[in-house]
């Protein structure tokens, strides 16, 4: 059992439980971050990387708990109805702002039942095609789709995910038709793209880059509003012929509605400091995500805009509602 103790100690350290008590702290000593996805996913990893530094900053114990299910709604619902003293937080992905448009029977109100805390991280998506597709730019792809409306399929990680709706947004803004082919997750879709079984996909940049470098995929554009610093030669889709196009995956931190003022202030201060820190920049770079910069009310406005945008996309795409 000795090994067990060593291990337990390592675990405690890793979870940031050994955090020394520091001066400022709003009146809770344990903070639970609910992740509404399974252990090991990007959201979970972000939460665990954030837990240590955040705990040190606030002088509290930060524990990550996975409550997966129903595209994140199970965990979100838990936090929506949790005690609003700042001890229960939620770290979730773009699903949070897509769900209101997609699901008409959500057990909570995405705008009313949460306090928006901070935009933690962003992941740009990229529009990629298999090398056999005779299109070297976004404009050529649009041309191709117009010539042969039945010919192009695009893959996604599933109905209502960010890379499905990035495609639907593209379709509705260009007026072309592509058949959506959903997969159980991004990885199997990528495999079919690499094998040439589907021609087009919108997927997260970190996944795409190694395949582009090895020549197995061709990148036509990035989905962000501005070019990505690591790929300065790749145009944005907006530049390349679809003005105004922007769609990224992002991860936000929320609390239940009505967080007390002191909790808000401490969290704002702690996250502003952390998200600008060298430590987080290094960690996030390793995970291939970019640190978010929006905190507090700026983030709240961002969330409201995103909900509206995705609701529009879901509607114009005619994604089946339940």
């Amino acid at each position: 059992m000795n090994g067990f103790k060593t291990l337990a100690a390592t675990g405690l350290l890793a979870l940031g439980l050994a955090a020394s008590a520091q001066a400022q702290s709003y009146p809770v000593d344990q903070i639970h971050i609910t992740v509404p996805f399974p252990a090991g996913g990007t959201t979970d990893i972000l939460a665990r990387e954030l837990a240590g530094p955040l705990g040190e900053e606030l002088g509290a114990t930060v524990i990550v708990e996975n409550r997966p299910g129903a595209g994140g709604t199970v965990g979100s619902n838990y936090v929506a109805h949790a005690n609003a003293d700042g001890s229960q937080l939620l770290l979730t992905a773009t699903h949070h702002v897509i769900n209101p448009g997609l699901r008409d029977n959500l057990p909570y109100d995405t705008m009313e039942d949460f306090s928006e805390v901070a935009l933690i991280a962003l992941v740009p998506n990229a529009l990629v095609v298999h090398p056999d597709v005779p299109a070297n730019s976004v404009a050529e792809l649009i041309e191709l789709a117009k010539e042969d409306p039945d010919g192009l399929n695009f893959g996604s990680s599933g109905v209502g995910g960010s890379n499905h709706l990035s495609g639907e947004l593209f379709k509705s803004m260009t007026g072309i038709d592509m058949l959506h082919v959903p997969y159980p997750g991004a990885a199997p879709a990528m495999t079919d793209l690499l094998g040439g079984h589907i021609p087009v996909m919108f997927d997260s940049l970190p996944t795409v880059v190694p395949h582009v470098q090895s020549g197995k995929l061709r990148i036509l554009g990035v989905t962000t509003a501005e070019r990505v610093s690591s790929l300065p030669d790749v145009p944005t889709i907006a530049e390349a012929g679809v003005p105004g196009y922007a769609a990224a995956s992002w991860f936000g931190l929320y609390g239940p509605a009505g967080l007390p003022e002191d909790a808000r202030t401490s969290l704002d201060a702690a996250l502003t400091k952390l998200l600008g820190s060298e430590e987080i920049a290094t960690t996030f770079k390793k995970l291939n995500v970019e640190p978010g910069e929006l905190v507090g009310s700026d983030f709240e406005t961002f969330v409201a805009d995103e909900i509206e945008k995705w609701q529009g996309v879901v509607k114009s795409a005619g994604v089946e509602l339940q």
């Binding site: 337990a8 390592t10 675990g11 890793a14 979870l15 665990r48 990550v64």
Partner: peptide, 8 residues
Amino acid sequence: LLPVTFGL
């Protein structure tokens, strides 16, 4: 046990 390996 996954979180236990995170500090290494």
